[in-house]
Simulated scan of single mutants.
Amino acid sequence: MALLTPLFAFLYHLPQVYKWLLKPYYVASLFMSVAFLAVRKTPGICDRLATQREDGNSCDFDWREVEILMFLSAIVMMKNRRAITVEQHVGNIILFSKVANVILFFRLDIRMGLLYLTLCIVFLMTCKPPLYMGPEYIKYFSDKTIDDELARDGRVTWIVEFFANWSPECQSFASVYADLSLKYNCAGLKFGKVDIGRYGEVSKKYKVSASPLSKQLPSLVLFQGGKEVMRRPQVDKKGRAVSWSFTEENIIREFNLNELYQKSKKLSKTRGDKVPAGVLSPGLRNCTQ
């Protein structure tokens, strides 16, 4: 059963994975991830490569290359235990495959290693993972609007994500947060986002570090009456973020979304707010009925 569960999950998301893999970013990443395999196995190219195999077969992996690939597989498995979306699973595989390729190419030939490393740097600087563009019911704040919007109506509870577009964790979390907004958004419970990579003053005011080494991205903060009530991940006395998994189940439980949603229905009925067409989900329909 332990093996069947991830298999069924993969098959369920297969159409979505297929759609992602057709995007230029993932197509290019896939080719870069299998670059060493292609070079080592392509006739006419592999015949000229150096090898440490006893049989002198330069078109097959030697024992050291097998060790490196096995070590890569172990790291990917460990990292993917904490992954919460298919994007994160695929991203981990691509990232560590590139790292392994750099090591393998440098070991084979320093010139090939430098060429591959240069390609990786150029790719990193010029290509970004595609942003989530699916349906959502989220208000995007700027440094000039966030304070006014949070304090506008004391009856409204806000859940605000502090994110940065360059953060892979934030990019992977985007679809999860959008799905929650479609299920739970109501007149009394709203979802917002603010890009602290763009608005540095917001980062300082709400004490969410936007450093590339920060473990606070993304951060979810619950506001009631314009005041912060709780946040995840929590920050200890030394200013370090406490590790926390941004799964949909964890967020629903920690932020009591089901209870907040039930309370928000009362405010929806008294205010008679309507949800714009095109963003309704079963949860939103129930909220406005």
Rank of each mutant, 00 (worst) to 15 (best):
I75K: 02
I75C: 08
M77C: 13
M78L: 14
K79W: 10
R82N: 10
R82W: 11
A83S: 13
A83E: 00
A83C: 09
I84L: 08
T85Q: 06
T85E: 03
T85L: 04
V86W: 12
Q88H: 10
H89W: 12
H89C: 15
H89V: 15
G91E: 03
N92R: 04
N92I: 01
I93V: 13
I94Y: 07
I94N: 05
I94V: 11
L95V: 13
F96H: 05
K98R: 15
V99R: 01
V99W: 00
N101H: 12
V102K: 10
I103A: 10
I103M: 09
I103R: 01
I103W: 00
F105C: 01
F106M: 06
R107D: 01
R107C: 03
R107A: 05
L108W: 00
D109P: 06
I110R: 10
I110L: 11
I110H: 11
G113N: 04
G113C: 03
L115Q: 13
Y116I: 03
Y116M: 05
L117Y: 03
L117Q: 03
L119F: 10
L119R: 02
C120E: 10
C120R: 05
I121H: 06
V122D: 00
L124A: 15
C127H: 14
P129N: 02
L131H: 12
Y132C: 05
Y132R: 04
M133I: 15
G134V: 09
G134D: 05
P135H: 07
P135Q: 06
Y137I: 09
Y137M: 13
Y137K: 13
K139G: 05
Y140D: 09
D143W: 09
D143Q: 14
K144P: 02
T145W: 06
I146H: 00
L150F: 06
A151G: 08
R152M: 10
D153N: 09
G154K: 15
G154N: 12
T157M: 04
T157A: 07
W158C: 09
W158M: 07
F163Y: 12
F163D: 03
F163E: 02
N165H: 13
W166I: 08
W166K: 01
P168D: 01
S172Q: 08
S172I: 01
F173I: 07
F173M: 10
Y177T: 07
A178T: 04
L180M: 07
S181F: 01
S181H: 03
L182T: 01
K183C: 07
